[in-house]
């Protein structure tokens, strides 16, 4: 059984398609008088299912209502967000491409350790509502009960505990800075490296490693299986009830964990201030709307409004500390 197409019918078919396309496209090409006049893309430099993906997909319908155009989510995962960030910058800075990413630590990491073809300041973060923190935890079965136990044991013998951690991460920087402040020998620590926060958390919950330093929010579902030991922030977070780093090691430098949220090209802010203002006010209004706060917090997603000034300052501060301790990030 073979189906026969003659050349004429094929020509008709292609001709028809072309005609249909040319009729449809002018409306897209010429109707650019007021922003936004066509759908807007949101680049998520991670695969489907992660925090940023969920944040983008949950926030997009509400933001879309305020901008009056549909939002398409584009996942460009890979290479620690380097691929997605590069892709985003390659798109025109006309306000039709937005970014939803873990700006810290990935932008500084891309620049400092991966030779990225961009600078952190090429990005402008409008709002970074999700601010994670490094948390040190141990299994409920480990026998360790407090941060003092950990510090004393490691001071006596730095090789006495195995430490689950991700290489080239903010968590690693925090561990090393803590070790320096309290007088533990950095080089002898027994690091066990994991490819992601999830595997490292599972390892410590199952008592496979003695302690782990990972982003704290991801520990919430495992709360019954772990003992929180130390939080790397200047105030208690998420009701863990553990010690905080500024009390345990006053004067120790530390970096915040993942700071996730919404960004645009830095060049858009300068080049098209009106368009930038439209997007910014839409994001602000959406972030503050009660129905959005309700929908997102029920999905354990952050929607607090910090604004561009605070967000960018915090990102750059993290980048500066990371750059200062570059040797930790590179010396794996």
């Amino acid at each position: 059984m073979t189906i026969k197409y003659n050349r004429r019918s094929l020509l008709k078919l292609t001709g028809g398609t072309l005609a249909a396309a040319s009729v449809a496209s002018p409306s897209i090409l010429f109707a650019q008088d007021s922003y936004p006049s066509r759908p807007i893309n949101v680049v998520v430099p991670f695969d489907t299912g992660g925090y940023n993906d969920r944040l983008a997909r949950a926030f997009a319908p509400f933001l879309s209502q305020r901008l009056g155009q549909p939002l398409n989510i584009i996942n460009r995962g890979g290479a620690g967000a380097l691929l997605g960030h590069s892709y985003f910058l390659q798109q025109p800075d006309d306000g039709y491409t937005l970014l939803c990413t873990s700006a810290a630590p990935f932008l500084p990491l891309n620049v400092l350790t991966q030779n990225a073809p961009f600078a952190v300041t090429d990005f402008h973060m409008m709002n970074l509502p999700s601010r994670d923190y490094t948390m040190m935890a141990t299994s409920t079965e480990s026998g360790i009960t407090s941060i003092e136990d950990v510090i004393n044991q490691l001071k006596a013998d730095p090789r006495s505990l195995t430490i689950g951690i991700q290489p080239a991460s903010a968590d690693l920087v925090n561990l090393m800075l803590l070790a320096d402040t309290v007088g533990i020998s950095r080089d002898e620590l027994r690091l066990v490296t994991y490819d992601g926060g999830g595997p490292a958390r599972n390892a410590v919950a199952g008592n496979v490693v003695d302690i782990a330093l990972v982003g704290g929010q991801g520990f919430l579902p495992l709360a019954d299986k772990i003992v929180p030991l130390l939080i790397f922030d200047d105030a208690p977070r998420d009701n863990w009830g553990s010690a905080i780093v500024t009390e345990v090691a006053p004067g120790a430098d530390f970096v915040l964990g993942s700071q996730r949220g919404w960004g645009v090209h830095a060049s858009l802010v300068e080049g098209s201030p009106e368009i930038y203002q439209t997007i910014l006010s839409a994001v602000e209004e959406t972030s503050k709307a009660p129905e959005v706060i309700e929908a997102l917090s029920s999905a354990q997603l952050a929607t607090d409004w910090f604004g561009p000034e605070v967000s960018n300052r915090s990102l750059l501060a993290t980048a500066a500390v990371m750059e200062q301790h570059l040797s930790i990030l590179q010396g794996s």
């Binding site: 489907t48 299912g49 969920r54 949950a58 495992l222 029920s298």
Partner: peptide, 21 residues
Amino acid sequence: GIPGGGATAILLAAFAMHNVV
């Protein structure tokens, strides 16, 4: 409450959307 892979991560997200942890 931990995902073994992408598919279960999506299911957990759906759980979370309905306030179920």
